Simulated scan of single mutants.
Amino acid sequence: MSTIRPYRPADRDALYDICIRTGDSGRDATALYSDPRILPDIFTGPYLELDPALAFVLADAADRPVGYIIGTADTPRFVSAYRRDWLPKVADRYPEGSGTGRDAERIRELHHPEWMLQDGLADYPAHLHIDLLPEAQGRGAGRALMDTYLAALRAAGVPRVHLGMGAANTAARAFYDRLGFHEIARPAPSLVLMGRGTAVT
């Protein structure tokens, strides 16, 4: 039996591991990077540090994290805080301009968080990331995590939220479609931006 609870600092390493193990469109991305920690240092760590109140953990019967949902209520504010408060803590590990292939692409993202400020998102100020280990999928836990996150956004007065997903991730697209998300834009062939209101539907 799984439960959803607020994030605790002791969960950090487990959430980093989940990010890596689901970082290739739901598959394990560990072997794709010379330092796979780059993924959670972009897509997990900053949210846990800058917006911990919007971090929720799916835990198994032993209270071991097997999934999470994280994000921010205000993407422009988050990008500013990322550059000011998060980037200095991790930049030395990944020098700007270093790496090749996928590593280089991720290092560019790390050093230039403004990529989160895509056109067409002004009406969708919040954004999120959700990841579940395979063992936690297909049981309604993803929907429950999303409901928890949307409720937190509603309580904060946030009307709409967006997310980015790989265009090739058909399973994720089907999941988001079922949850009422719709496509907003495709800023790149491999990236789909989806959004929805935070109201209960």
Rank of each mutant, 00 (worst) to 15 (best):
T75D: 01
T75G: 03
P76D: 08
R77S: 12
S80L: 13
S80F: 02
A81G: 03
R83G: 11
R84F: 06
W86C: 11
W86H: 15
L87G: 04
P88I: 11
P88F: 09
K89A: 14
K89F: 01
V90I: 13
D92Q: 04
R93A: 14
Y94M: 02
Y94P: 02
Y94Q: 02
P95F: 12
E96P: 03
E96H: 04
G97T: 10
G97Q: 13
S98K: 10
T100A: 14
G101Y: 06
D103H: 10
E105Y: 12
E105M: 12
E105I: 12
R106Q: 09
R108E: 14
L110F: 00
H111F: 11
P113V: 04
P113I: 04
E114C: 14
E114D: 15
W115T: 07
W115P: 01
M116S: 04
L117N: 11
L117Y: 13
Q118T: 07
G120Y: 11
D123C: 07
D123Q: 12
D123Y: 09
D123V: 01
Y124A: 08
A126E: 06
H127M: 08
L128W: 03
L128T: 09
L128K: 03
H129N: 11
H129F: 09
D131E: 15
L133K: 02
P134W: 05
E135F: 12
E135A: 15
E135Q: 15
A136W: 05
A136G: 12
Q137W: 05
G138D: 07
R139C: 13
G140M: 06
G140L: 09
G140Q: 06
A141S: 14
A141T: 09
R143Y: 10
A144V: 03
L145W: 05
L145A: 03
M146R: 06
M146Y: 07
D147G: 04
T148Y: 01
T148R: 10
T148W: 00
T148H: 00
Y149L: 02
Y149S: 04
Y149F: 14
L150F: 02
L150P: 01
A151N: 06
A151G: 14
A152C: 07
L153C: 00
L153P: 01
L153W: 01
R154L: 09
R154A: 10
A155K: 11
A155C: 05
A156S: 10
A156P: 02
A156E: 08
A156F: 02
A156H: 08
G157F: 08
G157W: 06
V158L: 03
P159K: 06
P159Q: 05
R160V: 05
V161D: 05
V161G: 02
L163Y: 08
G164H: 03
M165V: 07
G166T: 03
N169D: 13
N169H: 07
T170Q: 10
A171Q: 08
A172M: 00
R173I: 13
R173W: 09
A174T: 14
F175R: 06
D177F: 07
L179N: 09
L179G: 01
L179C: 13
F181C: 12
E183P: 01
I184D: 01
I184P: 00
A185P: 04
R186I: 03
A188L: 13
P189D: 14
S190D: 15
L191I: 15
V192C: 05
V192E: 00
V192F: 02
M194N: 05
